[in-house]
Design a binder for these strands. Structure first.
Length: 478
RNA sequence: CGGGGUGUGGCGCAGUUUGGCAGCGCGCGUGGUUUGGGACCAUGAGGUCGGAGGUUCGAAUCCUCUCACCCCGACCA
């Protein structure tokens, strides 16, 4: 099969127009519908099912590491939002305000949460008294609102779904451990569940979260060479604790400020899944989060024995995978295209000829490889192929990422590479914000992260030539 | 928020330059024939042409305002 052969005419080729390809997939795969509110989207059942699987994978890991789910209000009084100075400065430009309740004007306007640090802080200041109350390991699943100028489905919407973890610890060390622990969970979910390879690292001072002491991130690379921040974990130090007066009495009966963290992952990763794995026939979903892992398509269903056989197979395979049987009266060819568009990892075809031979045909969505499998060993084969599929997706994405990661030593090279073959740029950097700004102005690339895995590419900063402090990943970002 | 583009049945579009019966393809309903890569025949339903105002005997078409969406920038998960 020719690479990326396009079988679905309704999707724009990604080589022709990548943004349009993205929009086509999001609509044609029935992930979302646009709503009457600018920048807000309806997440349809298929799209939401993907989110539910991501959610359960994350939630499981949060609980395994001792976190509890809570729910905070969606409104924040203006005075509360303003308690931490750099935090409010970071978010003020994009908050939505509630000014009226019914026809009554409110005495204090309420902001619709853009994030809930301030609410958690207020609550923590009420419930934390002693070192015995620590740590507090809370998480919430909710939506937040940020009044963005321009929006795109999943990647940037006015309202989006996410989880936000907020923890309070007795010591700085514990907070740092927690921050890294959660970053590692995000990296694991990205790679093992979403099959998206990530670079783990720290954000520069310029790029870090408003109010944070340090921000860590997992960065991934999309098919068009643009970068996407896929999850973040912040160490707040005791900055918020001082602003909100969150203190506890330690073992020596002395008052101490808590050390806090927060971390989040959003529906944006669905955009990443589309842009990392998708092809010109539509979505390609990692089995771990695919709402349907295997679709059964009967061939010549009216012929004797076919309907009975697919019913039997559906029942058998439902025990080992998420299975859908499509015995509607559409033509098989139509169904093939439809489920390719929706990214279903495995398709099972069975017709009279197969039944005679006691076999079925399995077709992989990613390679379109046809695999003939005996009915007798179907369950083990399906499980095996799905596992292989999941691993292959990650490897394919990793190869693409590595092939689009470039080392550059000069600004000229930097600009040239970014223009001609977009991807991650690895360079040395002096650590000076002036250089970071200059690079952005000159090339359009931002510092994605200072990776934990440092390499010494040279001794001097790519921009100013002075002594280099860090190796940095740069890229144009979504 | 700056630049560009688009709004016509559920979807995709033609018609707008030069004002004159609201069209096409897909999809949808019904009946039938089909079924290993988006089937075919017959028949039917579905529209205040994004909205408001104006010009005109007459506006999808011209003018003014406005709203929404898409793309490219600046800002952001």
């Amino acid at each position: 099969m020719a690479k990326d052969k396009k079988l679905v005419q309704e999707i724009t080729s990604m080589e022709v127009d990548f943004p349009q390809w993205y929009t086509d997939i999001v609509k044609k795969a029935e992930l979302i519908d646009y709503s009457s509110v600018r920048g807000c989207m309806v997440i349809q059942p298929y799209g939401f099912a993907i989110w539910e699987h991501i959610k359960s994978q994350l939630d499981k890991r949060f609980k395994e590491t001792g976190h509890q789910n809570v729910y905070m209000p969606m409104f924040i009084p203006e005075s509360l939002l303003q308690k931490e100075k750099s935090h409010v400065e970071g978010f003020a430009p994009e908050v939505a305000w509630v000014t009226h309740g019914g026809s009554e004007k409110l005495t204090e306007r309420l902001c619709v949460r853009p994030t809930s640090e301030t609410l958690f802080c207020e609550h923590y200041s009420n419930v934390i008294q002693s070192y015995r109350d620590l740590p507090k390991l809370y998480n919430q699943w909710c939506s937040v609102v940020r009044w963005e100028k321009t929006t795109r489905p999943f990647l940037r919407t006015l309202e989006f779904l996410w989880q936000e973890g907020h923890t309070a610890h007795a010591t700085a060390e514990e907070a740092e451990e927690e921050t890294i622990r959660m970053l590692n969970i995000y990296a694991e979910v990205c790679e093992k569940v979403l099959a998206i390879p990530v670079v783990k690292g720290r954000k520069t001072e310029k790029e870090k979260f408003a109010g944070a002491h340090a921000t860590y991130t997992v960065e991934s690379l999309m098919h068009d060479g643009k970068a996407l921040q896929s999850g973040t974990s912040h160490n707040f130090g005791d900055g918020f604790a001082r602003a909100f007066g969150i203190q506890y009495t330690d073992k020596n009966n002395e008052l101490q400020y808590v050390h806090q963290t927060s971390w989040g992952m959003t529906t944006r990763v669905i955009g990443a899944i589309i842009m990392v794995h998708g092809d010109n026939s539509g979505l390609v979903l990692p089995p771990a989060i695919a709402p349907t892992q295997l679709v059964i398509i009967p061939i010549a269903a009216h012929k004797e024995g076919v309907q009975e056989k697919v019913n039997e197979l559906e029942e058998r395979l439902s025990k080992v995978a998420r299975v859908k049987l499509d015995d509607s009266d559409k033509k098989p060819g139509w169904k093939f295209s439809e489920y390719e568009m929706k990214g279903v990892p495995l398709r099972l075809e069975v017709g009279p000829r197969d039944i005679e031979k006691n076999q079925v045909i399995l077709v992989r969505r990613d390679t379109r490889e046809k695999i003939f499998v005996s009915m007798d060993e179907l369950e083990t084969k399906v499980v095996e192929i799905l596992e292989q599929f999941q691993n292959d997706l990650l490897e394919k994405a990793r190869k693409h990422r590595d092939a689009h990661t470039y080392v550059v030593q000069s600004m000229g090279e930097f600009k040239k590479v970014l223009n001609e073959k977009p991807g991650f740029i690895k360079t040395m950097w002096c650590g000076d914000e002036a250089c970071e700004k200059e690079i952005k102005e000159e090339t359009g690339a931002t510092a994605r992260c200072i990776p934990f895995e440092q390499e010494n590419l040279s001794d001097h900063c790519v921009c100013c030539g002075k002594e280099a402090k860090h190796m940095v990943y740069w890229g144009k970002a979504y």
